[in-house]
Simulated assay, not measured.
Amino acid sequence: MLTEIGKIIRQRRQQHGITIEQLAEQSNVSISLISRLERGKVDNIKLQSLTAIAETLNLKIADFFRDELLQSPNVVALLDYLSDLPAHQREELAGTLLKLLRLSKS
Rank of each mutant, 00 (worst) to 15 (best):
residue 55 E to A: 11
residue 85 L to S: 04
residue 91 E to S: 12
residue 1 M to E: 10
residue 38 E to G: 01
residue 6 G to P: 02
residue 30 S to M: 06
residue 70 L to R: 09
residue 105 K to P: 00
residue 91 E to R: 12
residue 50 L to E: 02
residue 37 L to M: 15
residue 68 E to C: 00
residue 103 L to D: 12
residue 42 V to L: 08
residue 67 D to Y: 05
residue 1 M to Q: 10
residue 40 G to E: 05
residue 10 R to P: 01
residue 72 S to K: 11
residue 64 F to Q: 01
residue 11 Q to V: 01
residue 33 L to Y: 04
residue 8 I to L: 14
residue 104 S to Y: 15
residue 23 L to F: 03
residue 39 R to V: 07
residue 79 L to Q: 09
residue 2 L to A: 04
residue 19 T to N: 03
residue 98 L to W: 08
residue 28 N to T: 10
residue 25 E to Y: 13
residue 83 S to L: 09
residue 47 L to E: 09
residue 58 N to P: 00
residue 62 A to D: 15
residue 64 F to L: 01
residue 36 R to D: 13
residue 100 L to H: 11
residue 75 V to F: 15
residue 90 R to C: 09
residue 88 H to N: 11
residue 61 I to L: 15
residue 66 R to H: 11
residue 66 R to S: 08
residue 46 K to I: 00
residue 81 Y to C: 07
residue 26 Q to W: 14
residue 61 I to N: 07
residue 7 K to S: 09
residue 85 L to K: 05
residue 83 S to K: 13
residue 2 L to V: 04
residue 22 Q to P: 00
residue 32 S to G: 10
residue 99 K to D: 10
residue 45 I to K: 00
residue 73 P to G: 04
residue 16 H to K: 15
residue 85 L to Q: 11
residue 42 V to S: 08
residue 61 I to S: 07
residue 79 L to H: 06
residue 77 A to L: 08
residue 32 S to E: 10
residue 11 Q to K: 08
residue 14 Q to D: 12
residue 63 D to F: 06
residue 5 I to E: 03
residue 17 G to F: 04
residue 22 Q to G: 00
residue 75 V to Y: 13
residue 77 A to G: 06
residue 91 E to L: 12
